[in-house]
Write a protein that binds this DNA or RNA. Structure first.
Lengths: 102, 102
DNA sequence: CCGGATCCTAGATGATACTG
DNA sequence: CAGTATCATCTAGGATCCGG
């Protein structure tokens, strides 16, 4: 293929059962690991952990560790991650328009 | 969850290794089963078949069967499917901007 | 030519217990 | 608190054979 690959690349990044939700939550501000876990109903710790690592590797989010007791880790969106806002908004609008989500 | 679900719904529809490519191909006009199979390098027949059924079930594409010999089946986008054009374009632009696809 | 039916594999997801 | 380790499960994806 040729023209199609550009779509696959971007889709892959937000593909994953929970990645869009993670991004969505971070769009409204920094979140700690525990907050994400609590906010995303039903996600397994392991999955959240791996998704966060993948998103970090893709340059979508930043991971900031505070050397405190108790430990604290905050996740924020990078500029690249922020730019996904448009895409997310469009998807939400599209969903509303066509009542995809029941 | 609540606000997040709207994203999951729309993501799920275009989630799948080849669905974006299928939609992308159909955006430029109707395609026959064989054309899609030939155009999408490396996809298995079964996968293409299932993806098409799912997309049809989701109301994204139409399946038109011609009672001819040899058999002919054409797939076209529904209005709902067409409306994904904006999303796809945005994804492509986003990819270009951030060089996601190598 | 267009797929449906089957079987198979790998990776994604989930639940629980354990560590720095 | 923020994960990792481990085990079980689930599902998408792929290959092949067969029928309309």
């Amino acid at each position: 293929m040729d023209c199609d690959c550009s779509i696959i690349g971007s889709i892959n990044i937000i593909s994953g059962k929970w990645k869009p939700v993670i991004i969505w939550m971070l769009l409204s501000g920094p979140r700690r690991f525990g907050e994400l876990h609590k906010g995303i109903q039903g996600i397994a710790l392991k999955v959240l952990s791996r998704h966060l690592k993948e998103l970090e590797a893709d340059g979508i989010i930043n991971r900031k560790v505070y050397a405190e007791v108790p430990p604290r880790v905050e996740y924020t969106l990078t500029e690249k991650g922020m730019s996904l806002n448009d895409v997310m908004q469009l998807l939400v609008e599209w969903d509303k328009k066509y009542k995809v989500t029941k």
